[in-house]
Design a protein around this nucleic acid. Structure first.
Length: 598
RNA sequence: GGUCUGGUAGCUCAGCUGGAUAGAGCAACGCCCUUCUAAGGCGUCGGUCAAGCGUUCGAAUCGCUUCCAGAUCACCA
């Protein structure tokens, strides 16, 4: 039972007793008291003036007096206008600290067999290009959300849908076949996904050259040239062969995809993300066709003259939507329906969450309606966790202009920068080279992840690869640094032979900063729930920063190990231990590691 | 044009189930390392919360209108 809920009930009792009126939880606004006033929690009494028929000040005074007399946690109160500032007793705070201290996973809701199952899809790469900055935001948000949902008491299945088929894949394959001379990741030393990506670019280059040639020398228009292009025709032919299951094409496809997956695995590992179940579009698109045909038979969809299949969503205020082309091939939507079908068969899904950029808001609106029509129980309230674009200072990333920030390069750069900075500050002087590398990795990745996750997911964000990553202020390293310092204090306490205890009785009251710190620590449970309800991890990031900043001020103002009163010293060590614990738990929800020293 | 997002300090962002004088960091300028890690702490400077109207005891927060920016409305994924 938190202090918040204790007080909420106390207020309800007070109002019932004083004014014989029922009050709902919603009407009770208990907020943290502003710094400039005395007290911990403030009750806004304006809503109760209607029941008391008295001035706000008098109402507050009466409620305050009643609570002081009847609630042991309330130590004092004062009234300013319509605000009742309540001071919680020192012993109540101490009790709360002990409670937090005794719970290794404070704030996490345990997952049981009866917990609902949430499936979270994220990443969703194409196999013809390496991952870039946009994918980084997607992966970090997705894996963080998965951890948050789990902490909120859901069974979680992390899933990935790989787009491994289509004309774009054939382009890479064709280019490799024509110009590759048997190049492999081993022979070139390139990462598999980069190697394949290079051939995708190579196709585009040759294709452009062919178009230019046709237009210049054959007097063709752009459109005619695109039709006449032998390269494009060959790519289309390759796609047809692929669909027919041609052994040679399939073998090449398999080979190149394996290279790509090996490359992706490395990127995922460095990013610290993983999946429980991976789906491939090459498996799901046929299922989608089947499901659509099923819907057609049931009369949910209709066929046009050219044999294409459509859904009429005008009843839902939307347009008609294509589900199968005239030649029977599938479109994006068909594949998503097929993927949903397979997932539904594999897991008892209660909630499906798609982590996909906001440019696809319309797509998911449609998908939700279609899945609902097709009888998926979670279709109607599927969650599209829609996040904003990552923009560069020059504007959007454009592959054609070469302004795409590659995920692997980005991570390597930031880790290198962390290493240089740490070395300059002499932080790595006493480390072995292996330790130095490990700390640099943790700090660099921490900076990157925190920078991206602290921003509200819905919003577009600006990312300056050169300047944005800072190690001071509201950053990952600042939080990691504070954590490392806490661990240092705890090590020194252990060396000094100070025993940690589970119980502690103080003969002197806590000071205000200590009480506020306990209050901030305890807020963690609420923050997790809010992040889960909003499907947005940014609140956790900002909370941890506030907590750490508050602890730093405390750390600066009060000595811990130098404190002479043994009981107070132990209490402060317990306080520090728990700040460290919350920071570690919170950062874990963001997928950020914290080092014991740095 | 329709629909959906967003607009808060020079910059990057918090705050949004309505509550007290709108907060951080960066940048700029001062101060603090003989004291538990200075990736730190303290201070100064910086705001018409895009604009207007409305709802009410009270609006950055809710509603309407306007302006600006982005996304989307494909037989692309």
């Amino acid at each position: 039972m938190t202090i918040q809920t204790t007080l909420t009930e106390a207020v309800q009792k007070a109002v019932a007793h004083l004014y014989s009126a029922e009050v709902t939880d919603k009407m009770i606004q208990l907020q943290q008291t502003k710094r400039e006033f005395e007290g911990h929690l403030t009750l806004v009494v304006f809503p109760f003036t209607r029941m008391s028929h008295k001035k706000p000040e008098d109402t507050a005074q009466e409620i305050g007096e009643y609570m002081l007399a009847n609630t042991s946690e309330v130590a004092a109160f004062n009234v300013i206008k319509g605000f009742l500032n309540i001071t919680i007793s020192s012993t109540a705070w101490m009790q709360l600290l002990l409670e937090v201290n005794s719970d290794e996973h404070y704030g996490y809701v345990p997952v049981t067999d009866a917990s609902p199952l949430a499936m979270i899809e994220y990443s969703s790469p194409n196999t013809n290009k390496p991952l870039h900055l946009g994918h980084v935001r997607n992966n970090l948000l997705g894996s963080s959300l998965a951890r948050v949902m789990e902490a909120c008491g859901n069974k979680v299945v992390k899933t990935n849908i790989v787009n491994d088929r289509g004309i774009h894949i054939c382009k890479s394959m064709l280019a490799w076949k024509k110009y590759g001379q048997g190049e492999t990741p081993e022979s070139s030393g390139k990462k598999g996904d980069h190697l394949v990506g290079d051939y995708y670019v190579s196709f585009d280059k040759h294709y452009k050259a062919e178009l230019k040639d046709l237009m210049d020398n054959q007097q063709m228009t752009q459109e005619e040239a695109e039709q006449a292009s032998t390269l494009m025709q060959e790519a289309r032919q390759m796609l047809r062969l692929w669909e027919q299951g041609d052994p040679e094409v399939r073998a090449l496809w398999k080979q190149m995809n394996e290279w790509v997956y090996a490359g992706f695995d490395e990127t995922y590992r460095q990013m610290g993300v993983s999946f429980d179940k991976i789906y491939y579009e090459s498996d799901t698109y046929l299922e989608g066709k089947e499901k659509v045909m099923e819907g057609l038979e049931k009369g949910l969809f209709f066929r046009k003259e050219d044999q294409s299949v459509w859904a009429d969503l005008s009843g839902d205020g939307l347009d008609q939507k294509l589900l199968l082309r005239g030649d029977g091939t599938s479109v994006y939507m068909t594949q998503d329906i097929g993927t949903a079908k397979m997932r539904f068969a594999d897991y008892p899904i209660d909630k499906m969450i798609y982590v996909v950029g906001n440019e696809q808001n319309y797509h998911f609106q449609v998908l939700s309606i279609l899945l609902d029509k097709l009888g998926f129980k979670w279709g109607k309230d599927l969650v599209h966790f829609s996040y904003g674009m990552v923009e560069l200072p020059e504007g959007k990333m454009k592959s054609r202009e070469g302004t795409v920030v590659d995920a692997d390069d980005l991570m390597a750069d930031i880790i290198q920068t962390a290493k240089e900075t740490s070395t300059e500050m002499g932080k790595l002087d006493e480390c072995t080279p292996e330790e130095a590398d490990e700390i640099s990795r943790i700090v660099g990745m921490g900076a990157l992840k925190y920078f991206i996750l602290k921003v509200d997911a819905r919003k577009n964000m600006t990312f300056n690869p050169k300047e944005s990553i800072d190690f001071n202020g509201n950053t990952g390293p600042f939080i990691q640094y504070t954590y490392a310092r806490i661990q240092s204090v705890l090590r020194k306490a252990a060396q000094a032979g100070i025993e940690m205890t589970d119980t502690l009785v103080l003969d002197t009251p806590l000071n205000l900063k200590e009480e506020e710190l306990i209050q901030s620590i305890a807020k963690f449970a609420q923050v997790i729930q809010e992040a889960g309800a909003d499907y947005n991890p940014s609140g956790i990031a900002n909370y941890i920063y506030d907590l750490v900043k508050e602890y730093n001020q405390f750390y600066h103002d009060y000595s811990i190990l130098r404190e002479e009163n043994e009981q107070i010293k132990k209490m402060r060590l317990m306080l520090s231990t728990n700040v460290g614990k919350i920071v570690k738990l919170g950062m874990a929800l963001l997928g950020i590691e914290v080092p014991d020293r740095m």
